[in-house]
């Protein structure tokens, strides 16, 4: 038996979770840059919603007591539109997982000596970066929307969008991992995402919703993410962190994000296993 000496005795390497995560995320970013149609698609839909709904509903919109009232619907809907963009961009970035499995790329990654955590985190980080690039384009409109917010609030908005994107990408990952076709993934995600978004106070204030809807909205985690996202538009960091409702939303959102990521890692760690043999 001879001892193998590949590449003149170079040692065998293994990637750290961080390196593997960054490598996989970078790939998603490269793919995104090379597919400009994706940018147009994910930016176009929320913008269209915002313009059409904003123009149509502004005359009849009454914010009630929300944020002191007296705002236009386009202003109210702006954070909701940001959330919608992040939701769609994040969730649909995970559709590549199904393509990767169909086209064989995923098995190459699964056979590499990388931790399963890095496979989840690579996809989540990649999807989040892609969503945040798109969100940044929409965030440039803040000064033109009549919002007068400081840098602290801008940072809070960006961080909240990133957290929201992590949750949405993680959720998309969980669903995509079990899906066999992109068409099925589209169907399931639209069925889940649209109600989540409609009933999240993105479209209308929680306070003015009928009692029965209000109950549903309170159990919708996206509602709490919207509270986190909307708050910095109307107050600085100090005011936000002094608000019990904001802190509650922060706790719930963090919990949901951790739960989703834990579910993703657990799902990926589960390997196909042969049935146990009968004894004897």
């Amino acid at each position: 038996m001879t001892s193998p000496t590949p590449f003149a005795g170079t040692p065998t390497f293994r990637a750290t979770t961080r390196d593997a995560t960054l490598a996989l995320a970078r790939r998603d970013l490269l793919r995104f840059v090379r597919q400009p149609a994706r940018l147009a698609g994910t930016l176009g839909q929320p913008l269209l919603f915002w313009l059409v709904l904003g123009a149509g509903l502004s005359p009849s919109f009454d914010a009630g007591t929300f944020a002191g009232g007296g705002m236009t619907y386009t202003e109210y809907f702006y954070p909701g539109m940001l959330a919608m963009m992040v939701l769609f961009a994040s969730v649909f970035s995970t559709i590549t997982l199904i393509e990767d499995r169909d086209q064989g790329f995923l098995q190459g990654v699964m056979a590499a000596p990388v931790s399963r955590l890095s496979i989840v985190m690579g996809k989540v980080l990649g999807g989040t970066m892609v969503a945040m690039i798109q969100a940044s384009i929409l965030l440039l409109a803040i000064p033109f929307m009549g919002f007068h917010i400081g840098p602290g609030s801008v940072v809070m908005i960006v961080v909240t969008l990133a957290v929201l994107s992590v949750a949405c990408t993680g959720f998309g990952f969980l669903v995509a991992w079990s899906m066999e076709s992109t068409a099925g993934f589209h169907g399931v995600m639209m069925l889940v995402m649209m109600p989540l978004w409609f009933l999240s106070s993105a479209l209308f204030p929680l306070e003015s919703a009928p009692a029965i809807l209000k109950g549903v909205m309170y159990v919708n985690p996206f509602t709490w993410a919207m509270i986190l996202l909307r708050a910095p538009f109307y107050g600085g960091p100090l005011e936000c962190f002094a608000d019990t409702r904001y802190l509650t939303a922060l706790g719930i959102t963090a919990g949901v994000v951790l739960l989703i990521l834990w579910g993703g890692v657990r799902r990926v760690k589960r390997r196909e296993k042969g049935l146990p043999l009968a004894r004897g």
Partner: peptide, 12 residues
């Protein structure tokens, strides 16, 4: 890029 990505998964 493909080779680079795969190398990175092995810590290169």
């Amino acid at each position: 890029e493909n080779l680079s990505l795969h190398g990175a998964l092995f810590g290169l």
